[in-house]
Write a protein that binds this DNA or RNA. Structure first.
Lengths: 207, 207
DNA sequence: TTGATTGCATACCGATTGGTATGTAAGGTT
DNA sequence: AACCTTACATACCAATCGGTATGCAATCAA
């Protein structure tokens, strides 16, 4: 009655991480209990503590998996193929805006959520979140560096600009959650694009 | 030796909210237990549930108090006295950057932290966070509206621009937590200022 | 075919959780 | 002076928490 079909051997760890991804995005890390995770994954607590030494270890694994997952997704995307580096950046922004059409928990960021709760209490999770945030820089950093090389802007570095993409993403998510509306998150990307067009003297094509 | 001096009658509620403000900023809402709060405030659980019907009710009271506190702080500040509306906005940004010199938990935002955890699980707390975020808009909205009236920018509304201040604030805090460094939060405000100067054709004064 | 290892499930544990029931002292009202 | 209400403190509770000890079936190496 409980578990109609037993979870196949070898899948427990992946299912636990997938369950954590969903639950943590909805309720946060602290509010998600180990029992919650096991129930959602369809496994028992024995499986949990076989794969993870502690709940904190699951948190680290979750964030690292998140880093890898998002990294692979953006790396595989065709926006990287465009000729002009700024076009790649704008295409990346288009992609980010597309995500905002999905339900809120699905465009919420695992790293941003967990680091809010554990930046002081868990050095390991904070470090994992740092890796994740930094990996986000890399999705646009090379393109921005290339664009800046061709069109220098005094006082503006590629690193600092890349950070603004994460600022817009994370800040946009918080506003979307608070106002229960993805529109401000979309507006954050719109303003970032307008900022870049002004910096690089590249007005939007009309028509 | 536990409570050397008894907390004076009438102060329990305020002390509980102050304790919650500190603990929630450090550990998040879910990870902060009622016992934690009572210990930090120097009162007993009887006092807690005398003033608050539940932990969730404390959360709502905390966020509402936060809204009022920050609102009063910014309203009282002399930046509001400047003649030019854009100068008021830039002075506001200076003020925000000043906060970033303090320890991380002290410039962390109560509303942003709590809404991450409870936007799905607690409608009451989410609504309180919405009030708080919206009240943040008001710190710059009239100045931006005035500036836009004198210098219209096609496709840009004062509301949308005001939102970007919260995006930069909240996003900057998350990056500061993840990288354990306030610099990206400061950079977020720097880029926002540069964006505004470009939009309003108001280059920074040199020398 | 055996033995060891891996990948779980079952059952249990002490501590902590949010919350309650009750007592009591102070302050205001009449 | 009697009374009531407010503002707490004390003591307790069932449920849930993260974690452990143990058992066992599947898989692999020899």
């Amino acid at each position: 009655m409980t578990t109609a079909t037993r979870v196949p051997r070898g899948e427990a760890r992946a299912r636990l991480i997938a369950a954590a991804r969903d639950l943590v995005r909805r309720k946060g890390f602290a509010a998600t209990s180990v029992d919650d995770l096991c129930a959602a994954a369809g496994v028992t607590k024995g499986a949990f503590f076989h794969h993870f030494a502690s709940k904190e270890a699951l948190g680290v694994a979750l964030v690292d998996d998140w880093t890898e997952m998002t990294g692979a997704m953006f790396a595989a995307h065709p926006y990287n193929a465009k000729e002009d580096p700024l076009d790649r950046v704008f295409a990346y922004l288009d992609l980010r805006r597309e995500f905002l059409g999905r339900p809120l928990p699905e465009f919420s960021c695992v790293a941003g959520t967990t680091v809010q709760e554990s930046y002081e209490t868990s050095p390991a999770i904070r470090a994992a979140a740092e890796r994740s945030i930094r990996s986000g820089f890399d999705h646009v950093l090379p393109h921005l560096a290339e664009a800046l090389a061709a069109h220098p802007v005094p006082g503006v570095t590629a690193e600092s600009l890349a950070q603004q993409f994460q600022v817009a993403t994370q800040g946009g998510i918080i506003l979307a959650k608070a106002l229960n509306d993805p529109a401000p998150a979309r507006a954050a990307f719109d303003h970032l694009e307008r900022y870049l067009r002004l910096l690089f003297d590249r007005p939007a094509a009309t028509g």
